[in-house]
Nucleic acid binder design. Structure first.
Lengths: 323, 323
DNA sequence: TTGTATGCGTTATCAA
DNA sequence: TTGATAACGCATACAA
């Protein structure tokens, strides 16, 4: 900056003014400064600026594993980028919550906690002065508000849809144990069964991902082999559903019959599988965007209005497997 | 830091020594300092530290859209986290290369350019003093070395495999136009066809994603309807392949016959589709990890050995569609 | 309209 | 073994 000042024949203070668009600089002077900046390829040092302004322009994202982490992150990244800020990302494995601390030691203006397990929220709460935080896909906390997909509504709508198709009950493959999304999805499923007075089968342990879904599908196959009434399955996410369908295909058509399998999330491939997957769109990407925008508005002091997560949209499709 | 110093009855400089584990502090003094740190919940300010050391501990990742961006990013994140550094992430849409500049204005110690289009590399090269850079999934540049998945080997092995199954030729659905991965994959496919003396059909425009694949699949359907010999298809990535299979299913079994469809990448769902997808594992996640480690080693001055990308592994599976 | 002086929270150099 | 002092590159109050 001093080099630029020297070249333009002004003080470094005037350079600062020009760089930050402050008023009260003669246009001709500003022009000289800009020329010098261009000539020297000068770029302001964000670190020094952050030190003195106490604002870094950095937003931290703490990512715990969940079924929609990638889509949530995509939305967050887009919103942060659109705001001209920069995103700091770290995964927070369940066995290493300290990964979050290493990120928070960077000076972040604000922080997004994605699908945080309780241990992570505790860690944040125990900080000397925690950054403004918005929870994405989790419960609101004293640290700040939360924005979450409509898991419950999605599960409920799907379960109702399946019951409406004539199934006497709907079995459930659960999501990641202890996660907010999985609890909400299970709650929605239970609610719809209760409304309809349907029997409530014991949920099948799942997790997330096609391999976990395939394993769960085998359990369901066994369940049916033991005589239970299984004609419809709601998996906690699309990737599980895909695996469940595969498990049914593995069994082969030896035992005749068809099962309707639904997922949750409407991942990009859901519509293009053979057969396409019945699911509900929870707009995870949009949720990520809105959460980030909420955080940004709070940082700018605007008393941000409560952010509404989009309602889940049912996507009835043909997804049946045979066995 | 001054508060800590006061509480421990030492100078701030001694606090700094303790924090950084410098030698020459009496153990008893160090203990007093540590106690004060704990009592006040003091955490060193990374910004101030970066200002004076000229090293921020930050690694920037510039992400251009590509078929494996998510897996590459996952590997990068893990390696950066394991090294105790922090990752800065920004997507660089083709229409907004300036997004990269905003990230680079942060002081990053080094930078990973993922699937960079030429425009992005130009932008990096034009910087006054560009950060040490490793290209991931792209060509090596004057800025630094590159680590890329074995696209060409994967495509070649798959094409050979299909030809070995007795197909007279293999049609190709291309990836993202102008991308390194897509050019390499196409080259591998051409090489295998040339070796076998097989006819080289015009590549079908694809892109990435199941929707693009489905559209490409329709083009192939039309191609066959016009009398061409189409019995095997190599799609440039698994998500395209999935869409292609769907397009064939859409056509229905009206015209009898089967097509063998293969993808590239071995995405997690590939093994669990019905039928499962023939593909080749390019270990994108591992490539991301290795690229990040290469960058980190260069930053630490170690004359890093050339990093070897893992060879592609063929995954022959049952993926046929009918029409 | 412009310049001078001060401080942001550290680390590094030197002297004690 | 420790402390005083000077940077690091910038923004901000104040003076000119």
């Amino acid at each position: 900056m001093i080099d630029v000042a020297r070249l333009a024949g002004v003080s470094h203070q005037t350079v600062s003014r020009v760089v930050n668009g402050h008023p009260g600089v003669r246009p001709e002077t500003a022009e000289r400064v800009r020329a010098a900046i261009a000539r020297l390829g000068y770029r302001p040092n964000a670190t020094a600026r952050a030190l003195v302004t106490r604002r870094s322009g950095l937003i931290g994202a703490l990512l715990a594993p969940g079924p929609d982490t990638d889509l949530l992150l995509a939305g967050i990244e887009a919103a942060v980028r659109a705001a001209g800020r920069t995103l700091l990302v770290t995964a927070v494995p369940p066995d290493d919550p300290a990964a979050a601390e290493r990120l928070l030691d960077r000076v972040v203006d604000g922080c997004l906690a994605v699908a945080p397990p309780p241990a992570l929220l505790d860690l944040l709460g125990a900080l000397a002065d925690p950054p403004p935080t918005v929870v994405v896909d989790g419960p609101a906390t004293p640290l700040g508000p939360a924005v979450a997909p409509d898991h419950r509504g999605a599960a409920r709508a799907l379960t109702r849809h399946l019951l409406g198709l004539g199934h006497r009950t709907v079995h459930h493959v659960a999501g990641i144990p202890g996660s907010h999304s999985s609890a909400e999805r299970e709650a929605g499923w239970r609610a719809a069964l209760a409304e309809a007075g349907a029997a409530v089968p014991v949920p099948v342990p799942g997790g997330t991902g096609p391999a976990a879904g395939r394993a769960a599908g085998r359990l369901i196959t066994a369940r049916r082999a033991s005589g239970e009434d299984v004609t419809a399955v709601l998996a906690a996410d699309d990737t599980l559903a895909l695996g469940v369908l595969r498990a049914f295909a593995d069994t082969g058509p030896a035992v005749p019959g068809r099962v309707h399998v639904a997922g949750i999330g409407d991942r990009p491939e859901a519509a293009h599988l053979v057969p396409s997957l019945t699911t509900a769109d929870t707009a995870a990407r949009t949720v990520g965007e809105r959460a980030a925008r909420l955080l940004l508005e709070r940082l700018e002091g605007r008393g941000a209005p409560d952010v509404q997560a989009p309602a889940a949209t049912l996507r009835p499709r043909a997804s049946t497997g045979h066995w």
